[in-house]
Amino acid sequence: NKFNKEMRNAYWEILHLPNLNEEQKNAFIQSLYDDPSQSANLLAEAKKLNDAQA
């Protein structure tokens, strides 16, 4: 299933973003579980936030 793979990839990438705190990571990961079809968008948002907090 495409979403499972996308979701897993997004999950791991978000988990390893160095500039997000636990609360931010948890919020993105919760959103992933709530709507796996948004994995790519959530990952993009997480990366933007990560870069902004660098």
Rank of each mutant, 00 (worst) to 15 (best):
S39T: 06
Q24G: 03
W12F: 14
N26V: 05
N26Y: 12
K2A: 06
N1G: 02
L15V: 13
L42E: 03
F3E: 06
S39M: 12
N9Q: 13
L43N: 03
P36Q: 07
A27K: 12
Q30D: 06
H16M: 07
I14Q: 00
A27H: 11
L32E: 00
D51F: 14
L32G: 01
A44Q: 13
Y11W: 09
E13M: 06
K2T: 10
F3G: 04
Q53A: 06
A10R: 02
N41A: 09
K48W: 07
D35M: 09
E13K: 15
M7Y: 13
E23M: 11
Y33V: 05
N9K: 15
L43Q: 05
N9D: 14
E45Q: 15
F3A: 03
F28Y: 10
K25W: 01
N19W: 13
E6P: 03
L17E: 01
K48S: 10
A46V: 03
A10F: 03
A52M: 12
I29R: 06
A27S: 15
Q53Y: 11
L42A: 08
W12E: 08
Y33T: 05
L17I: 02
S39K: 04
P36W: 06
K47G: 04
R8Y: 04
H16N: 06
A10Y: 02
Q24P: 01
E23H: 11
K25T: 11
S39L: 12
Y11V: 11
N1W: 00
E23F: 14
N21D: 13
N4P: 05
K25M: 12
Q30I: 07
K48F: 10
L32D: 00
L17N: 01
I29Q: 08
L49D: 08
L32R: 00
F28R: 01
L49F: 12
N26E: 09
N1V: 06
D35A: 08
W12I: 07
M7G: 01
L15P: 00
N4H: 09
N4Y: 08
D35K: 07
E22Y: 10
A52Y: 13
L42F: 10
L32T: 01
S39P: 03
L32W: 04
L43R: 11
E6F: 02
E13Q: 12
W12S: 04
R8T: 10
W12R: 11
K47S: 04
A27T: 10
Q24T: 10
H16E: 06
E13A: 15
N26R: 15
E45F: 08
K47L: 04
E22I: 06
L20I: 13
I14P: 00
A10S: 04
S31Y: 07
I14M: 09
N26S: 12
E45P: 00
W12P: 01
R8L: 14
E13H: 13
L15H: 06
N26L: 14
L42N: 06
A40H: 13
A27P: 04
W12T: 10
L20G: 00
R8E: 15
S39I: 07
S31V: 06
A44G: 06
N4M: 03
A40V: 15
Q53K: 03
K2E: 15
A46S: 09
E22H: 14
E23R: 15
E6K: 02
A40R: 05
E13I: 14
D51I: 10
L43H: 04
N50L: 01
N50D: 09
K5Q: 14
F28Q: 01
A54N: 13
E45L: 08
E22A: 13
L49W: 08
A44D: 13
M7N: 03
D35E: 09
L42T: 00
H16V: 05
A44L: 10
N26A: 15
K2P: 09
M7V: 12
D35S: 09
N26M: 14
I29W: 15
L15S: 07
S37T: 10
E22D: 05
N50M: 02
Y33Q: 04
F3K: 01
H16I: 05
Y11N: 02
K48V: 11
N1A: 01
Q30E: 05
A10G: 01
L17F: 09
D51T: 15
S31I: 05
K25Q: 07
R8F: 15
L43Y: 04
A44W: 06
K2S: 14
S37R: 06
S31A: 03
Q30R: 13
Q53W: 07
N4S: 02
Y11Q: 09
E22Q: 08
N50G: 02
Q30K: 11
Y11D: 01
I29F: 15
R8D: 02
Q38E: 14
A54T: 14
Y11A: 07
S37G: 05
I14A: 01
K25H: 03
W12A: 04
K5I: 04
S37I: 07
F3N: 12
Q38S: 08
N21I: 12
A52T: 09
Y33W: 09
Y33M: 05
E22N: 14
D35R: 08
N26T: 15
N4R: 01
P18R: 11
L49Y: 10
L20A: 01
A44M: 14
H16K: 11
H16Y: 10
S39G: 05
E13V: 09
N9G: 04
S37H: 09
A44K: 14
S37L: 03
I29S: 14
D35H: 09
N21F: 13
Q30V: 10
S31D: 14
L49N: 06
D35N: 13
N1S: 03
L32K: 00
P18W: 11
Q30A: 15
Y11T: 03
E13L: 11
